[in-house]
């Protein structure tokens, strides 16, 4: 096994002492000064939080417009739909008219999530020849279960997820990993479909960080061990600066916003 907590073997002590010397500080075990790390909650904390959480319909529509405008710049398609089941039929249509990139069979993988359940995909796809995998899992999935899910993932050409937030200003979907929400669903399939509710759209990155840090609800979950921002489909400009979509991640990205 590799050394872990042992300070000597991780080289930490010597390393930090060296830095202290360079900074001209007395070396030794200085207790981390927490004030360096966190900021006292701003005085307008309550006010800001309540502003963020009480947007009316008009504000939300404005944010949706901004999001759509920014998303267009990064080649991400945003489609507002009134209800979950309308989103479901839209996804079905997408599946029927999109061909798989690698194989010939059509498989789709979706997060286990109440919002995605609203799409009623199982019923929608009942008469089509399409396999639908849901990333449902036991509380502590073992190797076998994980490998099975990985096979499903690799077979799927469309991956369906939700998001925790959607930042309008930069067209960014924010996703935290957790049970039933494997990160590769938004990454490995050729097409990434995200379904969000309109009130998940927020203004800016600064609002996002503020809420993650100060909103008691978000604080509890924290950033988790993997939080990902996605702003558009995978792209590269490494050959003569020519923009090409679908370098390694999804070639196409579609967001359905449930407005009802």
């Amino acid at each position: 096994m590799m050394p872990s907590g042992n300070q000597k073997k991780t080289g930490e002590h010597e390393f930090i002492t060296n830095i202290q010397k360079a900074l001209g500080r007395p070396s030794g075990s200085v207790l981390p000064d927490q004030s360096v790390l966190t900021q006292a909650p701003p005085p307008d904390l309550e006010h800001r939080l309540s502003l963020y959480c009480s947007r009316n319909r008009q504000d939300q529509t404005k944010l949706l417009d901004l999001f759509m405008e920014q998303a267009a710049l990064v080649n991400m398609k945003v489609i507002p739909v009134e209800t979950g089941s309308l989103a479901g039929s839209a996804v079905r249509e997408l599946i029927l008219k999109t061909e798989p990139e690698w194989g010939i069979e059509k498989s789709v993988i979706a997060w286990q999530d109440p919002l995605i359940e609203q799409l009623g995909l199982k019923e929608q796809l009942a008469s089509d020849n399409v396999a639908l995998f849901i990333t449902q899992s036991s509380p502590a999935p073992g190797l076998e279960e994980r490998e099975e899910k990985r096979r499903h993932l690799l077979e799927s050409y469309i991956g369906i997820t939700t998001a925790d937030f959607c930042v309008a200003e930069s067209a960014t979907l924010v996703m935290r990993s957790g049970p039933g929400r494997p990160r590769a669903v938004s990454l490995v399939p050729s097409v990434h479909v995200a379904v969000i509710k309109m009130d998940q759209i927020i203004q800016s990155l600064s609002e996002l960080y503020f809420r993650l840090k100060f909103d008691p609800k978000e604080k509890e979950q924290g950033l988790t061990n993997c939080m990902t921002f996605i702003s558009g489909p995978s792209k590269t400009a490494d050959i003569e600066l020519v923009m090409v979509h679908g370098a390694h991640g999804p070639r196409q990205m579609i967001v359905y916003v449930i407005t009802g």
């Binding site: 920014q70 710049l73 990064v74 930042v167 200003e169 930069s170 067209a171 960014t172 990155l205 950033l223 988790t224 061990n225 993997c226 939080m227 990902t228 921002f229 996605i230 702003s231 558009g232 489909p233 995978s234 792209k235 991640g249």
Partner: peptide, 13 residues
Amino acid sequence: QNMAGYVSYIGGP
């Protein structure tokens, strides 16, 4: 760009 395509916060296994 306004925002890079992918940003990931990774904090453990």
